[in-house]
């Protein structure tokens, strides 16, 4: 899904959530070299940044990497370009969830019991987040 300006909405959302700019990356790969779960990733951390630079949002949305990422922050600590890759991953997770559409937590899907037990605030915030 792209916005009117031709930009990827997923990637723009990621930038907004994380405050990180993938264009700062020069692909040295130090994040991937340091990542303790690198072996379990279908896209290595440096590839994620490259895909972000190239605007490959579908591939990113389907990648397991953001979900396998353990948020250990080693990548962020090592990055010579001062990019907080752990934030990028979190930003991606948020953007993917929020962009999935559909009524992930629509009120109709919840049982009356759930609706009664869950705090109002959690419900409202859940709808706001996932009901776009």
């Amino acid at each position: 899904m792209t916005t009117e300006t031709g930009k990827s909405r997923l990637i723009e959302d990621m930038k907004m959530h994380s405050g990180q700019d993938p264009n700062g990356c020069y692909q040295c790969g130090k994040c991937s070299a340091a990542c303790p779960v690198s072996a379990a990733l279908d896209l290595k951390p440096h590839q994620v940044l490259r895909y972000l630079q190239m605007g490959l949002e579908n591939e990113l949305a389907e990648s397991k990497t953001p979900w396998v990422c353990a948020s250990c922050f080693t990548c962020a600590a090592r990055c010579p370009r001062d990019i907080d890759l752990a934030r990028v991953m979190e930003g991606l997770r948020l953007s993917i969830l929020r962009n999935r559409g559909g009524n992930k937590f629509g009120p109709a899907e919840l049982t009356p019991e759930q609706l009664e037990k869950l705090p109002q605030q959690a419900l409202v915030s859940g709808f706001r987040k996932y009901n776009k």
Partner: peptide
């Protein structure tokens, strides 16, 4: 030495 070859994306 643990590194990466970013051309093959292999650790």
């Amino acid at each position: 030495v643990r590194g990466i070859d970013s051309l093959t994306n292999r650790n």
